[in-house]
């Protein structure tokens, strides 16, 4: 098992350099909101709400061919507003755009455009096809876990704790089940937990796992190494609330929310699985090549991750107290 730590520390060191500075700062994710209100005779009224320190103009919109924009008016003729609407600058100048379509005598519909999917298809009856939701939310989920270094570090910590395939599968599965439960609960509005304490606790969860890993390496008795799925499930509940943060700002109509949630979760699992498989692949590759780093490297890597996670925790906790 010692070999596993040595090579894993390589990964840990890598993340350490990546996270070095400014990890506790939040990054700006400019989101623009467009409201489209139906008037009479194929006329629609547009209203932008956006904020970005980098841009003082709303994102550019490519309307379907039969529509003509004369801000704040949009003329679509007899057909009305149907077809594909594209915002080519999304993902570049803006992170995402939420478009709300308010038709007369119908409930408002919301569409989310992201860098991965800067387009939406508006249909006459106003329903959002599931393919559109999938195209928007699967990438959003993958993106969320891939950029969520704290989630990935936690998963890496779990991988260090487990022994054997069965333990690995149960641990990762219980993490998945747990975060799916809380993600669904939070997104569907059954449970409401504010962002900041959740984020502080997520940082703390990494610290706990790292401490468990260090204890385990020293040969001390610890529950988490015997029952890693338990720790995965417990903290998985917490991480689910973290994932829900990405879904909370998105103004979807209630009937589209379960599908969006499903696809977002699928995206998260795809990303997580890719990460786990990469790490396991590298572990086996190093074993085949008999490539081992000196013990101090792994030690330094694990302590590095612990320090970063502690730093995050302190930063986030301080931010929590400050508000």
């Amino acid at each position: 098992m010692a070999g596993r730590y040595r090579w894993l520390s390589r990964c840990l060191l890598l993340w350490t350099c990546l996270l070095g500075s400014g990890a506790a700062h939040s990054h700006e994710t400019p989101v623009a909101l467009l409201t489209i209100k139906e008037g009479i005779a194929g006329t629609y009224w547009l209203e932008w709400t956006y904020y970005s320190s980098r841009n003082d103009v709303p994102p550019q919109v490519r309307w379907p061919g039969h529509c003509f924009e004369d801000y704040p008016r949009l003329e679509c003729g007899e057909q009305g507003l149907v077809g594909e609407v594209v915002m080519p600058e999304i993902g570049d100048k803006y992170s995402a755009a939420v478009v709300q379509v308010r038709r007369q005598g119908a409930a408002p519909r919301s569409y989310t455009l992201t860098g991965g999917n800067p387009r939406m298809v508006v249909t006459a009856d106003g329903t959002v096809p599931w393919q559109t939701i999938a195209a928007a939310y699967i990438p959003l989920g993958i993106e969320h876990i891939m950029l969520g270094v704290d989630h990935l570090l936690f998963v890496l910590g779990l991988l260090l704790l487990v022994h054997g395939t069965r333990s690995l599968v149960t641990t990762i599965t219980s993490f998945t089940v747990a975060h799916s439960i809380t993600l669904a609960a939070a997104t569907l509005g059954w449970v409401g937990i504010p962002d900041k304490p959740v984020n502080a606790c997520i940082a703390l969860s990494i610290v706990v796992v790292v401490v468990e890993v260090i204890k385990h390496r020293r040969g001390e008795h610890c529950l988490s190494a015997r029952l890693p799925w338990l720790i995965a499930f417990g903290f998985g509940l917490l991480h689910g609330f973290g994932f829900a943060g990405a879904m909370s700002n998105v103004g979807l109509p209630p009937e589209s929310l379960p599908a969006a949630l499903l696809f977002f979760n699928v995206g998260v699992e795809v990303g997580q699985l890719a990460f786990v498989l990469t790490v396991l692949g590298l572990y086996h590759a190093h074993r085949v090549l008999q490539a081992r780093l000196p013990a101090w490297c792994s030690q330094a890597g694990i302590y590095g991750v612990g320090s970063i996670a502690s730093y995050w925790f302190i930063g986030r906790f301080a931010a929590l107290l400050a508000t």
């Binding site: 590298l282 590759a285 074993r287 090549l289």
Partner: peptide, 15 residues
């Protein structure tokens, strides 16, 4: 990292 991933995974796989 891309280089490392490729030479590690392919190197070991090919071995």
């Amino acid at each position: 990292c891309a280089g490392y991933l490729l030479v590690a995974l392919l190197g070991a796989g090919a071995l």
